[in-house]
Write a protein that binds this DNA or RNA. Sequence first.
DNA 1: CACAGAATCAAACGGTCGTTTGAAAGATTG
DNA 2: CAATCTTTCAAACGACCGTTTGATTCTGTG
Lengths: 243, 243
Amino acid sequence: MGVPANQRATDSSAGDPKAGDSKAACSKALDTKQRILEAAEALFVERGFSGASLRAVTGAAGVNLAAVHYHFGSKEGLLHALLDQHVGPINQDRLERLLRLEAASAPAAPSAEAVLRAFIEPALMRERGRDPQRVRSLLGRIYGEPPHLVGPLVEREFGALGRRFVEALERSLPQLPRDELRWRFQFVVGALLYVISGNAGLALQFGPELGRASTEELVELLLGFVEAGIGAPARASRAEGTE
Amino acid sequence: MGVPANQRATDSSAGDPKAGDSKAACSKALDTKQRILEAAEALFVERGFSGASLRAVTGAAGVNLAAVHYHFGSKEGLLHALLDQHVGPINQDRLERLLRLEAASAPAAPSAEAVLRAFIEPALMRERGRDPQRVRSLLGRIYGEPPHLVGPLVEREFGALGRRFVEALERSLPQLPRDELRWRFQFVVGALLYVISGNAGLALQFGPELGRASTEELVELLLGFVEAGIGAPARASRAEGTE
DNA sequence: CACAGAATCAAACGGTCGTTTGAAAGATTG
DNA sequence: CAATCTTTCAAACGACCGTTTGATTCTGTG
C-alpha cells in the first residue's frame, strides 16, 4: 500500500507505467488523470503556475486533492505531464514539417519563409478539438514564470528544437551573421509567444476588434511580419568574430 | 496612531503625500521606502510578483515587514509604486521623443523607423545608474503574470501610450490596413518584451555567447528586425471594412 | 469467494502567505 | 520639557499552500 506511482517524481525513465502496463486495471484512473490535466491546463493558463493551487485544480476537476501526487508525484510533475501532452506534439509537428521541407528541397536549403511557417503554424493551429485559445495560451503563460522554474522546462521542451530551427535558418540565410540571425530568431519567438499568451494586454488595448482575427489570419499576419524581419538586410559590419 | 498612509491603496489621487509635505519629517522614511522599492524590484524580477514574498522583500531591504503596508498600503500598492517609478519615466521619454519627432517633420508624418526607435530605445537604454538588465527586466516579468493582475496594470501604465504610438504609425504607414498595423505593433511589443525579460530562456539556449550583445547593439538588432517587419507589404485584401 | 494491487478518500502536517495590531521609538513643534 | 505626529517594531491573525498519511473503496485475478 502507499506509494506505487510516486517514484515518477524522481524517476526519469520514459513512458507511463500505467499506459505501458498491459493489464487494463485503470478504468477510472485514466479519467481522473485526464480530468486533472484538463483542469490544470485551464487554471495554469488563467492564473499561472504559482497562482493556481492544487486545491483549485482538484476542485475544478472533481477529484481528490491527493490524486495529483498519486498520479504525478508533485505539482511540478503535473506541469511536466501537461507540457509533454501539449507542447510535445506541437514540437513534434514542427520537427516533422522541417524535416519534410529539407528533404523536399533536395541538397539546397529550404526558404526561410517555409522554415518560419513550419515553426509558427503548429504552435497556432493545433486545436486538439477544444478551445484553441486555451491550448495555445499555456506555453505563453509558462514562459512568464520566474526563470528558476521556467529555465529547465524550456530547455527540456524546447531547447533542442529551437537550436535545430536556428541551424535550418542559418542554412536558409547564409549571408546573415550567425549571432544576428540568432537574435532575430529570439525576436520571432518573442512575437509568437506574445501572440500565444495573447488575451492579456492586447485586446484590451484597442477593444475587442483586434481579437476578431481568425487563427488562419493570425498565422498569415505573424508570418508576414517575421518573414520580413528575419530577412531584413544585415546591419553593417557591427562586430567581427562571430564566435 | 494607526493608519496614516494606508489610504493610498484606495486613494487614486496623484502625488506622494510625504513628498508634497513641506515638513521634512522623513529622514529615515525615504530611506526605508527607497530600500523597499529596490529590494522589491530585484526580487520581483527574479521570482515574479507572486513568487516574491513580502518577507523576502523586507528581509532583503533590512526593514520591518509592516513597513510595506505602512508606506504602500499593500503588496499591489508596492508594485504600482515600482511601476510608477520605473516605467513611468520610460513612457514619458517615449512620448517626448514621439512629440519631438512629429513636430520636427512638419505637417508630414515621421517615418515608421523613427517612431519605432522612439518606442524601443527608451525601454532598452534607460539605465538609471544601476544594473540596466535589472531595470529592464521588471516590465517583462510583470507581463508574464496572470491577466487578472496584469490587465489593469498594463492599461494604466501603457494603454494610452500604446494607442498613441499606433496612431503615429498609422500616419507613417497610411497604405497599411489599420488592423494589420495594430497586429504588427503587437508583434513589436512581443519581441521587445521578450528581449526585455530576456535572461530567462534565451541565453541558455545557445550558451552565453548571445548575451554578449551590448545594449546599443541590441537596440539596433531589434530595430532592424521590427522596421522590416512593420514595413512589410500588406497581405492581399484579407478583409474589408476596417471599421 | 478470497486476495492482492490500484485508486480514492478525509484529514491532518508543517510552513508560508498577506495583512493587521498595538505598543515603542523617533522626529517636530509649541 | 511636553505634546503630537510620523515611523518602526515584534507578534500575531486567519487563510491557504504543497505534501503526507493511513484507512477505505474499487478492480481484476486465481
